[in-house]
């Protein structure tokens, strides 16, 4: 696919219903196929992933530095989650087809992680003396850890099949 393409012009504030089929078709013919994964709804995803990167990274940094022995598994999992979040954030910001695929893969890893760790913490709580970001399916974080990868997957799939941000509109 086309490697780097300039980001699309932001849509006009009042231009809600302008996303006709014609716009979509023109956009899918344009060389810029997925330059917009960090635009529009992607902006919100970037922000949320950014927040979770900072949250998970600082949390695990503090825990690993101060009391690694208490719950090594939980803290290492938090650190792994932070890495996944950081990678997805960067991919979304960079844009382009390769970044989109990388982010797609990472969202799958993330979803698997949340589901596995979530189930694990419920089945065998003794393995986790302290909570991770993904404990109980992210309940301590308003379930955002489980909602985020699903939203991410939907968004990243959609920005491919419709050929760019123009078709995704609102």
């Amino acid at each position: 696919m086309a490697p780097e393409t300039p980001p699309r012009e932001p849509r006009d504030p009042g231009g809600g219903p302008s996303d006709s089929d014609a716009t979509a078709r023109r956009a899918s013919n344009a060389p810029a196929r997925s330059a917009g994964i960090g635009k529009g709804p992607g902006t919100l995803l970037v922000t949320l992933y950014g927040i979770f990167t900072v949250g998970a990274a600082s949390r695990s940094a503090v825990q690993l530095a101060t009391r690694f022995d208490e719950a090594p598994l939980a803290y290492l999992l938090s650190a792994a989650a932070a890495l996944v979040y950081a990678f997805i954030t960067l991919s979304l910001v960079r844009g382009g087809e390769r970044a989109r695929r990388a982010a797609l893969g990472c969202c799958c890893v993330e979803l698997l992680g949340v589901l596995t760790v979530g189930t694990w913490t419920l089945v065998e709580p003794s393995a986790f003396p302290d909570a991770t970001v993904w404990s109980d399916y992210g309940m301590g974080y308003l379930f955002i850890p489980v909602i985020l990868p699903v939203t991410g997957l939907l968004w990243l799939r959609r920005s491919r099949s419709h050929g760019g941000p123009a078709a995704v509109g609102d």
Binding site: P41, L44, T47, L48
Partner: peptide, 23 residues
């Protein structure tokens, strides 16, 4: 989030600010 909403002049910018405020 305010700066982000300056670069994203759509309703998604507004939603980003809302998310930041909830956080």
């Amino acid at each position: 989030v305010g700066l982000i909403s300056l670069t994203e002049r759509t309703k998604w910018g507004s939603l980003t600010v809302a998310a930041g405020a909830v956080v």
